[in-house]
Design a protein around this nucleic acid. Structure first.
Lengths: 231, 231
DNA sequence: GTTTTTTATCGAGATAGATCAGCTTTATCG
DNA sequence: CGATAAAGCTGATCTATCTCGATAAAAAAC
């Protein structure tokens, strides 16, 4: 990885990273002070579960996978990460360890923000802290939703959830890109790879989706949502 | 239920509810303004999933169960609630619906706090908002931990988790009280009641726990932790 | 203190999902 | 470009867990 100040300063990012729009120039300056950006290659660990969290990271470009290393070498993918996503809490808020790992799925540029500076700005700017709190609330909501889905839905429902999430929230359309492997889908839905493949093939037979290699195209979004609802 | 200002004012609670210690008198006054407390009887719904969340609640005395109403009439118990716990987020933070229900396990007194007032104080007092943020981070952490446990551990591990949680965090000892039913344990661990009973009996045979009626006594905490670790 | 209702218990059978082994296709690399 | 590795696919077991039915015990109602 390539450590340097790859961007000129946070002033430029300001337009992109929604959360930072609430900041004054002085506050941006403070965040910018100890900031540095790093370019990661495919498969490189951006943030490792269990390490001391004294920074937040903001993803500038690329694509990454955020997951928890669970029991028996199993992973649980929490999210896929696109640009302008801020990552680090709650580890970084609590001066604690990171609770998950983040790994680059492809070439990814991220910005490391010192968590003390971040927290100073949080204390100083209440609009910013409101928005940050809202973000945390959103994270918690999603965690609750997934907790229920993972523990109560069976495979068909969970695969539907994964496809809906990937298509609608990550790829913003009906086609899921080749970055996503079958193993990823298995790790997101907490099932074996073999089972994930089986359900996907079944969905293909039922003309709910189309599979060409790794690319998944959603044909019948309505049915997918119905299956997701039913569990 | 019995609606009245059962406590004199937040000034008194100040010593008890840790989070509120950061507040000035004026800020407490603001929170106190539209505050009211209600006494709930066993089984009564304190807060219903899906309703508009325009208040936080602080539990003053009693004992309650917080759960998500999931798929096929199944519940997932998130936590058991003891006094001085603040509940409401993220629904109440985001002007959204409550994402879970809270029901009194026995006679319970709770205090309803207007979420607008609460948010005003959050904006005004950065120490308070820091602490609130830390609380949210803790909630998120716990949700992640349970997400992994529920989706990756099998029954023995999950029952161990439940017993450890109940004994160490709720009952602060080695004995789990009669308020907790077998169904509760099943709903906390996301398994059928029959399976929960079976594992409990097995633990009893193995002299890990002792069962007298609903009361569960933990005999071999070390082994319980070991089983929890293994999954 | 019966009767009724709820909760706990347990065995037998059913099933969702995992595991395994073998095979095919697709990437990767020298 | 051919070789080797990695990922995708599939059928056949195997197993953890659920469901159901029947009983026992405990709690609540009368």
């Amino acid at each position: 990885m390539n450590v340097e100040k790859l961007c000129i300063g946070c002033e430029n990012c300001n337009e992109k990273a929604h959360l930072f729009q609430a900041l004054s120039n002085e506050e941006l300056e403070l965040i910018n002070k100890d900031r540095y950006s790093v370019r990661f290659h495919e498969g490189e660990v951006i943030l490792k579960q269990g390490t001391q969290a004294n920074y937040f990271i903001s993803v500038i470009e690329g694509f990454a996978r955020m997951y928890i290393e669970g029991h028996n070498d199993r992973k649980l993918i929490l999210e896929f990460i696109k640009p302008w996503r801020l990552i680090g809490g709650p580890g970084a808020q609590l001066n604690d360890k990171h609770r998950y790992s983040v790994v680059a799925v492809r070439e990814t540029l991220v910005c490391f923000i010192d968590s003390n500076n971040f927290k100073k700005v949080l204390s100083a700017n209440s609009e910013f802290s409101d928005q940050f709190l809202a973000m945390c609330g959103g994270n918690y909501n999603r965690a609750l939703e997934r907790m229920v889905g993972l523990s109560q839905k069976q495979m068909h429902g969970r695969i539907s959830d994964a496809l809906i999430y990937l298509a609608e929230e990550i790829y913003l359309g009906t086609t899921i890109g080749a970055e996503i492997s079958r193993q990823d889908i298995a790790d997101y839905t907490s099932m074996s790879k073999d089972s994930a493949i089986r359900i996907l093939k079944e969905f293909e037979r039922d003309r709910i989706i189309n599979l060409k290699g790794r690319i998944i195209e959603i044909l019948d979004s309505k049915r997918l949502h119905a299956i997701s609802q039913m569990g």
